Computed example of a mutant assay.
Amino acid sequence: MNTLHPPVPAAMPRARVLAAYLQETRAECLRYLRSPSFVLPTLLFPAVFFLMFGVVLGARNSPEAPRFLLASYATFGVMAPGLFGFGMSLALERDNGLLTLKRALPMPPAAYLAGKTAMAMLMAALITVLLQALAINLAHVQLQVPQMLHLALACIAGSMPFCALGLLLGTLVKGHGAPALVNLLYLPMAFLSGLWFPLSMLPAAVRGLAPLWPSYHLNALAQAAVGFDDGRAGLHVLWLAAFTAVVFAIAAWRLRRHG
């Protein structure tokens, strides 16, 4: 027997690789959907804000306010699954050893990240559908089917940059510090991107910094979906794609290096 060159394990068949991804995705989605402490705040937080400002107060300020706020709070809502689902859970799973266990299992390494990403996109879809239902039935926002699909697609795909950012945050802090760090970034980023108030109402210095935030660009795409197109959709998509790739690469490097 040649002990200098041990046999290389055979590659996992494609069917088993696909099954591993599907099983991890199913497990992640079920785990979060069965957690009321995650699902209810994630769904209800943007819905309550929209009810207060888009339904109760929106039409009093402007007939177009509910439509504008629909896109804004959809953006605000889809930020949370990526930031909290990745950031907080990754930090906790690194602390309690679950991540180490998953690495030891015979599963593709990327299945762990794919499962969490699918969970975030599923939550983004649920949030968008809920807000659209409230906007159409309670705020009487007139939306065509292509607009509804456009908004849903923008929000579902737009959850990816926040998954990358959440992944990076999860590699930076321990489990007990993750909630504070995520909230410290989540709420100010929403405010500074013009999600709660139009940027025209904010100081010039804040308006100048707004394009630095991924939420600003996603909000622009969401606004374009409901009829407030600024004519720069391609630029916003390119910025979000570059942000996602760079931040994910940094987070993956940190995860491999520091575990």
Rank of each mutant, 00 (worst) to 15 (best):
A91G: 05
L57R: 09
A249N: 08
V78I: 15
H176P: 07
A249G: 12
R257N: 08
P81A: 06
C29G: 01
M123A: 09
E28T: 10
L18G: 03
L122K: 04
V182A: 02
A190Y: 00
A233D: 08
K174D: 09
S37I: 13
P203M: 11
A74E: 06
K174T: 13
M148G: 14
P9E: 02
P161N: 05
G87S: 04
L122P: 02
L153G: 13
F50K: 05
F49P: 00
L185V: 13
V129T: 11
A11P: 07
V237H: 02
I136F: 08
A20H: 12
L98F: 14
R14N: 07
A135D: 11
T244D: 10
G231V: 03
L168T: 12
Y73K: 10
G77E: 07
L209C: 13
L235S: 13
S200I: 05
N137R: 14
A80D: 04
G97L: 09
A104F: 03
C155P: 02
I127D: 07
Q144V: 12
G234D: 06
L199Q: 03
T128R: 12
A111S: 15
P106H: 09
S37M: 11
L30C: 14
L212Y: 13
F84M: 08
P188C: 08
P46A: 08
V78E: 09
S62L: 09
G177P: 03
G54H: 07
I250S: 01
A59L: 06
F76V: 14
G175L: 10
P203G: 06
G158P: 01
L181K: 05
M1N: 10
G166I: 01
L99K: 06
V141S: 01
F49S: 00
P66R: 06
Q144G: 15
G58C: 08
G208F: 11
L130S: 08
A139D: 03
L4Y: 12
A74I: 08
G259P: 15
L113Q: 09
V182M: 00
R94I: 01
P179I: 09
G82K: 02
R60I: 00
A157W: 14
A210I: 02
G97R: 11
K174P: 00
H150S: 15
P63F: 09
E24V: 13
L168I: 10
W253L: 14
V141A: 10
A152N: 04
V247S: 05
S159R: 00
L143F: 07
R103F: 12
A10W: 00
L218V: 05
L44V: 03
L240N: 02
P146A: 02
H150W: 11
E93S: 10
